[in-house]
Design a protein around this nucleic acid. Structure first.
Lengths: 139, 139, 139, 139
DNA sequence: GTGGTCTAGACCACG
DNA sequence: GTGGTCTAGACCACC
């Protein structure tokens, strides 16, 4: 279900957050769906329960999931909307990177081609593909 | 010359690296130019000399600057080439972000428009004759 | 495990880097193995944690070890390959020294004999099957 | 006469020492020959006189040159012998490097081939007659 | 507990 | 004056 790389530079709790959000977008975890329990994930991934807890806490803070104590965690009804808003922030990150690329003399066409190439491969349905390629995205 | 934000989550030494690299691309520090000394920058920015030193060490390792102990640090002759190669890595970061945006349902046009908007505002690099594949300029 | 000479002209942090790399080649630290923690080494060697940290940072940059903050540092899977590539650089150092020896009139035979003498004493690497072109062993 | 690289990582005073010693071995500065004055070299190389002075001091300490105050510096009569002894120290450096290469699994043949390749190109022995069959070597 | 960053202050070698 | 190393001690994020 969730793929975590313990050796990545990206913090594990952040990888879990990203994975869950990706699964929600992919429809694997539709709104209302119950997430795996902290204990279950902890064992399955071989990761400290505190780390899982931190991830779920972050997702709760973002409003992506709801925590009902004693019952479990569920994907919130407006999770998809929230995730789309979050995506807008990533657009700003791209914008900042584009500014740096422009400064370095990278041709506009190269950047546009990269974007076009990504969108040429539809990823919306719950199909699988090479998504994680180790990344250094900060903040 | 260099703007640093001590409150940012990005480490100070990394901000300095980025700032210096940006100034090199802007032509503020042309190849062969002497960088401000560790102590000078330290005082001017109100930052510990060790932190500046770490930044200069990283730039040296990247080959962006040459350091000659007892004399100072100088922008290397092929600094611009190295920085352009580094920029290619950022393109891959953009690629990864684009994949996430696509998954979140952000339209391809939004991303392309963001890129185009950035490239519509020329940042005046020092003397690139072959920067944009298409001679696009505003006005 | 690691032997450091505080009085050497070679920086301590560099000695640590070399020692760790040597232990990896010797199989003392096999790929995947966890390195001693920064604080542990610091105490055991009587050296400031910052200095150890600098060494581990360098090893990480070289790709010899992987570091996962909060967890520890681990020998990377392709550490041996990287170290072998680094060794090729040392060959060039030998080449330069040989040029100087030749200029000083040192006979070719003296240099070759020195090399042969070293290779006559196998240092027992972990599991190299293709190490010496000639299966020479002493008796 | 002397080639110095101000941007090298090797200290300038050390480069000067090496250059002078190389010229002595090449016969450019035979025993008894007067070296360029500190002032002259300083101007010709664009280097601080203190740095030249330090180099000459080191050469004097090694017994390679003699300083007669008010008159100048002269290559000592036994300079060649001293340089040959110094070369023996370099052989030990090669030995140490060979040990590291062996540990990294570099084949004995590779090292021997490197030595042989160097000695295959005669670099103009210290004295008399037809030396450089093929010219053009830099360092 | 782990690694990572930063500060303060000291000392050294180089130019 | 320059860069480079080291120590001491502190704080942070992560597991």
């Amino acid at each position: 279900m969730l793929f975590i790389n313990k050796m990545s530079s990206k913090p594990i709790y952040e990888q879990i957050v990203d994975s869950v959000e990706r699964n929600i977008l992919l429809g694997v975890y539709p709104p209302g769906c119950a997430l795996p329990s902290v204990r279950e994930l902890s064992m399955k991934l071989g990761i400290n329960p505190n780390t899982i807890q931190k991830s779920y806490g972050e997702l709760t803070r973002r409003g992506v999931i709801l925590t009902s104590p004693g019952s479990g965690c569920y994907v919130s009804e407006n999770a998809l909307d929230i995730l789309k808003i979050q995506a807008q922030a990533k657009l700003q990150t791209i914008r900042q990177l584009a500014i740096e690329l422009q400064l370095a003399g990278v041709p506009k066409g190269d950047v546009l081609a990269t974007i076009a190439e990504v969108y040429a491969h539809p990823k919306s349905p719950p199909s699988h593909s090479e998504t994680t390629s180790e990344g250094g995205v900060d903040t």
